[in-house]
C-alpha cells in the first residue's frame, strides 16, 4: 500500500542494467542486507537504454521517486551506456523541473557487482530523500506536501527500517 492513514511509504522505481547494477542487488540479497521494501527494480539490458519515456511513465504510474543504477563509469559492458544514462538523467531532471515534480525525485548511482551494501544504501538514500520531499504531487491532487508534513507522516508511521524486507537473491 502506498500510503494509508498517516503513513507515507515512498514508492521507488529503480532501473538497473543487467550486469553490475543488478548483480549488486543480488549481492545485497546474498549478504542479507535490508533496503526499503517499496523499491521496485526493473532490469534493463544496459542503462544506455534509459529513456525519459520510461522515467516519466514511472512517475505517471505512481512512483514518488525514480533512480537508475548503472555500472561504474569506465566499466560499462557496452562501453558508454552508463555515460548516456547519466546524460539522460540530467536532461530528464530538467523536464521534471518544468513539469513541477522536481528533478530531485530522480537520481543515478554507479555500482559494481560486489557493492551490495551500496545498493541498499542507494535505496535508503532515495527513500529518505522522498520522505523529506513528501509524496509525488501527482498523487496528492496537485498539492505539494511540505517536508514537515511528510516528516510527521513518517513519525506517525513505521520507521524506514521496519518497511524493509530482507533482500533475496
Amino acid at each position: 500500500m502506498q500510503r494509508t492513514g498517516e503513513c507515507f511509504e515512498p514508492q521507488l522505481t529503480a532501473f538497473t542494467c543487467s550486469y553490475c547494477a543488478y548483480m549488486s542487488g543480488d549481492t545485497a540479497g546474498a549478504m542479507r542486507i535490508q533496503y526499503p521494501a517499496t523499491t521496485k527494480v526493473i532490469k534493463l539490458p544496459c542503462t544506455g537504454k534509459t529513456d525519459a519515456r520510461y522515467i516519466m511513465s514511472a512517475f505517471e504510474d505512481g512512483a514518488d521517486g525514480v533512480y537508475i543504477i548503472a555500472c561504474p563509469i569506465g566499466n560499462c559492458h557496452h562501453v558508454r551506456g552508463n555515460e548516456r544514462a547519466r546524460a539522460r538523467v540530467v536532461h530528464t531532471k530538467k523536464l521534471l523541473d518544468q513539469v513541477g515534480l522536481g528533478g530531485e525525485r530522480l537520481d543515478i548511482f554507479f555500482l559494481s557487482a560486489g557493492m551490495g551494501e551500496s545498493f541498499a544504501q542507494a535505496a535508503k538514500e532515495m527513500n529518505d530523500r522522498i520522505m523529506r520531499l513528501g509524496p509525488s504531487p501527482l498523487r496528492m491532487g496537485g498539492k505539494e506536501v511540505g517536508a514537515g508534513e511528510a516528516g510527521e507522516q513518517k513519525n506517525g508511521g513505521d520507521e524506514t527500517g521496519e518497511q524493509s524486507v530482507e533482500a533475496t537473491q
Binding site: A52, V99, L138
Partner: peptide, 16 residues
C-alpha cells in the same frame, strides 16, 4: 510521448 506525459502530469497537478 514525453510531451504528452509532461502535459498530463502538469494538468494533473493543476486542475486535472
Amino acid at each position: 510521448e514525453i510531451l504528452a506525459a509532461s502535459m498530463r502530469m502538469r494538468s494533473e497537478m493543476s486542475d486535472g
